[in-house]
């Protein structure tokens, strides 16, 4: 039996796994984005610049911590189940987003911020109209990293009973069923690539063309 035959015969079960996988990643990415963006904005305020730099250092180093370690650690606290995976993925996803948001916002030139203030923008307008658009490229890059990592790590999360497409691969590996391994692999790779392509597309429409022109 090949992978496509497997998919055809087991579609209801497989589609449930796809839904689980996407659900896990979706919830985790949304949580990471909200937390990462909010924290990144707070620590990049001029008064908190020292905190911001410390956060950049910490998140920079934290990206060297393997994602599996975070899942394993969460397992110690919350045991088996999808909750463990979602919490671990959310925490792990915050790191690249927070790193990119805070470093990009801290890189917005002070002159530009002052020009915006000098023209009569309120602090919120400066943030929304100037700072975030200038940082958008980097924010989107952080988001893409988080999504790629989460799709990948969610597969491994199968070992803590989180469900998702990892289940198909693991079962395939343990009972030596190449068709299952291939089917799971194909699906998870497609999700990873398609979500990245989708985000690249969103990135192109969100980021101003003016920023990609070499200065």
């Amino acid at each position: 039996m090949n992978a496509f035959q497997y998919l055809g015969r087991n579609w209801p079960g497989v589609s449930a796994k796809i839904a689980q996988h996407l659900g896990m990643v979706g919830v985790a990415v949304a949580a990471s984005l909200v937390v990462g963006l909010a924290l990144g904005i707070v620590v990049s305020r001029p008064r908190l610049q020292k905190v911001g730099r410390a956060i950049i250092g910490i998140t920079g180093a934290a990206q060297a911590v393997p994602s599996v370690a975070v899942i394993a650690l969460m397992f110690v606290y919350t045991g088996i189940g999808p909750r463990t995976a979602v919490i671990a993925l959310s925490i792990y996803g915050v790191v690249p987003i927070l790193f990119n948001v805070s470093s990009a916002l801290l890189l917005v030139p002070a002159d530009i911020r002052e020009a915006a203030r000098g023209m009569g923008m309120t602090p919120l307008q400066v943030l929304v109209r100037v700072e975030l658009p200038l940082a958008s490229q980097s924010i989107m890059a952080g988001l893409r990293t988080a999504v790629t990592i989460d799709v990948s790590t969610a597969t491994v999360a199968s070992v803590v009973g989180a469900g998702g497409l990892g289940d198909i691969i693991f079962i395939g590996l343990s009972v030596v069923r190449p068709d299952m391994i291939m089917a799971g692999t194909l699906l998870v790779a497609s999700i990873a690539i398609l979500s990245d392509v989708l985000l690249a597309f969103i990135q192109r429409s969100v980021v101003s063309r003016g920023l990609s022109i070499p200065s």
Partner: peptide, 8 residues
């Protein structure tokens, strides 16, 4: 530098 690069 005061011009906003992301605006036309």
């Amino acid at each position: 530098v005061g011009l906003f690069p992301h605006f036309t």
